[in-house]
Nucleic acid binder design. Structure first.
Lengths: 114, 114
DNA sequence: ATTTATACCTTGACCACTTAGGTATGAAGT
DNA sequence: ACTTCATACCTAAGTGGTCAAGGTATAAAT
């Protein structure tokens, strides 16, 4: 259930950001995002894995099979150079969008409303 | 052109907010959002009108045909009581989501990344 | 009489996300 | 040994918001 409150389109940014400091496997990406956001962002697996495949297809990520500290098989994803550039773009896009929405939300009656 | 940069799901909030100070017609809602956001938020008409219908169907809005200051026919939308409640909910949802995303974006390497 | 800006609408396609399943494996408990 | 649990991956069908690209109508201006 959980109804993960995220707006469509932000998932890519979150994933790219999760990999900024080095490779992680998919399951850990989801967990990391949830923990950093203190539960506010719950990524469904049905959204996470297709997103990882899409980002890899786009060339932002590459992947390698390996083993976790707990000795489980896992596919580790890493940022490519293109992915790093994309992360910067997406970060800027988010900042601009968030600022714009906040501008609307803080609009006062004084504005023209013809 | 334009490729309106908004994350899916934020449109409802923007529309509800636009009507907080009183009724507006659809075209004016789109223009108001664009102007307040200084062009950052460009609402496509193909998204705007269906959204208005959807919000009205949900009971957040009601509508009446009238005439603008320029003497044009236009359908004026107003917030219902349920719509006002919904605006509060959506505003909170946005605030929480934005805060969560910002938390992820400002995450430092120090965080556990097992 | 034509153009322009306003104002509304719809249809088709896309695609991210949800829901709801499924498989496999290592570790831990009984 | 067997079961259970958490980990870790995956996919298929359906939903639904948005975009692209059309279209109509009308008041005012040229």
């Amino acid at each position: 259930m959980a109804g993960s409150n995220l707006y469509t389109g932000t998932l890519d940014l979150l994933i790219l950001k999760a990999l900024e400091w080095g490779p992680l496997h998919g399951y850990a990406i989801g967990r990391w995002i949830r923990e950093i956001s203190e539960g506010a962002l719950q990524i469904e697996e049905g959204a996470l894995y297709p997103a990882l495949h899409r980002l890899e297809r786009s060339g932002w990520l590459d992947s390698d099979w390996g083993r976790t500290e707990r000795n489980r098989q896992a596919k580790f994803y890493g940022l490519t150079k293109k992915g790093t550039t994309q992360l910067e773009k997406e970060t800027m896009r988010w900042a601009e969008h968030a600022q714009a929405v906040d501008a609307v939300l803080s609009a006062k009656l004084s504005t023209e409303r013809s």
